[in-house]
Simulated assay, not measured.
Amino acid sequence: MKIIVTGSLGNISKPLASELIRQGHDVAIISSQAAKQQDIEALGAKAAIGSVEDAAFLTAAFAGADAVYAMTPPNYAASDLIGYYRHVALAYAKAAKAANVPHLVYLSSYGADLEKGSGIIGGSHQAEGILTALDNITITLLRPGYFYYNLYQFTGMIKAQDFMGSNYGGEDKLVMVSPLDIAAAAAEELTNATPQNKVRYIASDEKTCNEVARIIGEAIGKPDLTWLTFTDEQVKNNLLEHGMPPAAAGLLVELNAAIHSGLLASDYEKHPPALGKVKLQDFVKEFAAAYQQG
């Protein structure tokens, strides 16, 4: 199969491309950075250098593809984050239609079923709507949970204050996921001989925030580490003090609040997947190594 992978050599895209190449597929990787071309080719893939916001470029890159893995690169500098997701999805839709792509696998998020109240995940909701409206293209929506590496954001707080904290915490449950488990699921869907329009949730482990703090604390030599729950206002003010634009801060606080209330995982809980291979105990080894080096 000829398969297009977006996301350059990111945490998901690199292991995904590597697995597809191992299986013998013809893989092209889209990257916005020309400097990545050599590394992409060293992996055994073709490099297509350009922007996923450029529908004309994508149309050319998608030509002859049997399947496309599409993701929206993070862009917290965008003045309208939701609009950015919509813009990228429209470029994907236009290119997939023009290039007659038969199957598109889109990296969305848990909570993307929600029309409102999910913060930045509202962008994934709108992207899903744009892509699933396409005719004659099979759309597979991947909805992973909370990425393990989001926990790195607490490193400075742990070192300075000996606790973790946000406007979610305590006994709130985190549905967590490893990029490796996402890559494995994406590879399965991209190479499916009989793809279907469907939603696939992906998770690696489920733990309360208290359990996460305990496991991290034991790994870094702080067995009494706790995860505190702050108010929405406290978290937003802290984000603003650290220079985050007001609109982005508001979306992040809303997203966190949806984790705290359980809203974000409400549909996930109705369709729980089999958990992946990479558990929190595996990830904390990486976390502890990075913590000690930082």
Rank of each mutant, 00 (worst) to 15 (best):
Q33F: 09
I30T: 04
Q196C: 05
A288Y: 04
A258Y: 10
K207D: 08
G24C: 06
E254V: 01
L263N: 07
K207S: 04
G156L: 13
G156D: 11
A185L: 09
A133Y: 08
S204T: 03
F163R: 13
L263P: 07
L255T: 03
E128I: 01
R214I: 02
T72H: 09
A112I: 04
V284P: 13
K198T: 00
D39C: 02
A183Q: 13
Q23V: 05
K116V: 00
E189Q: 14
D232S: 03
L9S: 01
I49Q: 02
A45P: 14
L16V: 04
H242D: 01
G123K: 15
A42S: 11
H87Q: 14
A95R: 01
S79E: 12
E115S: 11
R200A: 04
Q161A: 14
K46Y: 04
G169I: 14
L180T: 04
D267K: 09
H25Q: 09
M1A: 15
A184G: 05
G119D: 03
L174Y: 06
P15Q: 15
A193G: 05
L255D: 03
E206P: 00
V68N: 13
E241R: 07
G7R: 07
G165V: 12
V284L: 10
A160N: 15
A67G: 14
E171C: 00
A56F: 09
S51D: 14
G44M: 00
Y110K: 08
G165H: 05
I139N: 05
P73E: 02
D80L: 04
P245N: 12
A17T: 05
Q196T: 06
F154Y: 15
A28T: 15
A184D: 12
F283M: 11
L190P: 09
L252P: 02
E218S: 08
S79K: 11
P74I: 07
S8C: 01
I137V: 15
P273F: 10
A55R: 11
R200T: 07
S79T: 10
A289N: 01
D181V: 06
K277C: 06
G262W: 08
A67M: 03
A183L: 11
T59E: 14
Y84D: 11
E19R: 09
E19A: 11
A77D: 09
A289D: 04
A185C: 08
L142G: 10
K207I: 02
N136H: 14
A183K: 12
A47E: 08
I130R: 12
H103Y: 10
M1H: 09
A61I: 13
Y84Q: 15
V235R: 06
L240F: 01
E115G: 15
G111M: 05
G250N: 06
S261C: 01
G276I: 11
K36P: 02
Q153S: 15
G169K: 12
D39E: 13
G119M: 01
I40A: 00
L9H: 05
E19M: 03
N237P: 08
I120K: 09
P144D: 12
G122S: 06
A187R: 13
P195A: 02
Y92G: 12
N150L: 00
D282P: 12
K222W: 03
D26L: 05
V284Q: 11
L131Y: 13
E233Q: 12
A65M: 10
L16Y: 07
E171H: 02
D80Q: 08
P179E: 08
I4S: 07
G7F: 08
G221A: 02
L180N: 13
Y106G: 03
A77F: 07
I158E: 06
V88N: 03
K97G: 08
L134R: 08
Q281K: 09
I137F: 03
A63R: 15
